[in-house]
Amino acid sequence: MPTDVDRQLAQADALLARTRDRYASVSKRSRQRREAEILRRVGRIALADGLIIAVALVLGFVLPAGIGMFGALLMMALLIAATVTLAIFPGSAPPRVEQLTQVPLKALPLTTERWLEAQRPALPAPVRGLVDSIGVKLEMLAPQLALLDEHAPAAGEVRKLVGEQLPELLKGYQRVPEPLRGVERNGLTPDQQLAQGLQVIDDEIGEMSAQLAQGDLDLLATRGRYLQIKYRDDGLPG
């Protein structure tokens, strides 16, 4: 006869399985965002290289002897340096987790999404779809927060969920040594606990967005629904 632990394990495994399928389209959107970033990098490289070539051509016409062999070599070196630099280095450093509690409310969704994108490679593949889903919902939430008073009680609920509880969940998981992340403890593995916590946050952001869209600020501010994430009770560092 199945025990409570068996049922809990089955539910966690089912959640991981649903995550792989349910967020396939969201992962596609995430890939599209990364492809757009690549296109922006290519555009910056083309602009920089074009500027270097234009300057070389102008100097070639202005200088009596042209740019000469040394100038041509210098131009090639600058082209290579600009291309490599713009291709390797990110356009901007990802935000630090401390910034999530400091940025203005209207900038919180985009800042959190950029921070999440930087954490994504360190997370197990089955939950990356949930991370992508949270990122999409944050995009949807951004215009609504831009109209919300920074000091409203509802704003505090959003900031607590997105700026505090979400980072705490991921930081707690990342503190678990990698070999232990698949080891069951108190009925669940850290991977399963992470999936459950992200699912709760994903659902909460969706509900917050719906309530903001309906103008239910009082309900959002007074419902008192704080995350009860399993990892805190089951031993995953928080």
Score class of each variant (00 low, 15 high):
2 P>E: 04
12 A>K: 11
22 R>D: 14
29 R>L: 14
30 S>N: 10
33 R>Q: 14
34 R>G: 01
37 E>H: 09
38 I>R: 14
43 G>M: 05
43 G>A: 08
43 G>E: 09
45 I>P: 01
48 A>R: 05
52 I>K: 08
54 A>Y: 01
55 V>L: 13
66 G>W: 09
66 G>S: 04
69 M>S: 11
77 A>Y: 01
85 T>N: 13
86 L>E: 11
86 L>K: 10
93 A>Y: 06
95 P>Q: 05
97 V>F: 02
102 Q>K: 14
106 K>I: 12
107 A>P: 00
110 L>D: 13
111 T>Q: 05
113 E>L: 07
115 W>R: 10
125 A>N: 08
131 V>T: 08
132 D>P: 06
140 M>A: 15
145 L>C: 09
152 A>G: 07
156 G>I: 01
159 R>V: 01
160 K>Q: 13
160 K>L: 13
161 L>C: 09
168 E>G: 03
176 V>S: 02
178 E>F: 09
183 V>F: 02
186 N>P: 02
188 L>Y: 00
191 D>F: 00
191 D>H: 12
192 Q>F: 02
195 A>E: 04
198 L>F: 09
200 V>M: 09
206 G>F: 04
210 A>W: 08
212 L>W: 07
217 L>D: 04
221 A>V: 07
222 T>I: 06
234 D>V: 07
236 L>T: 15
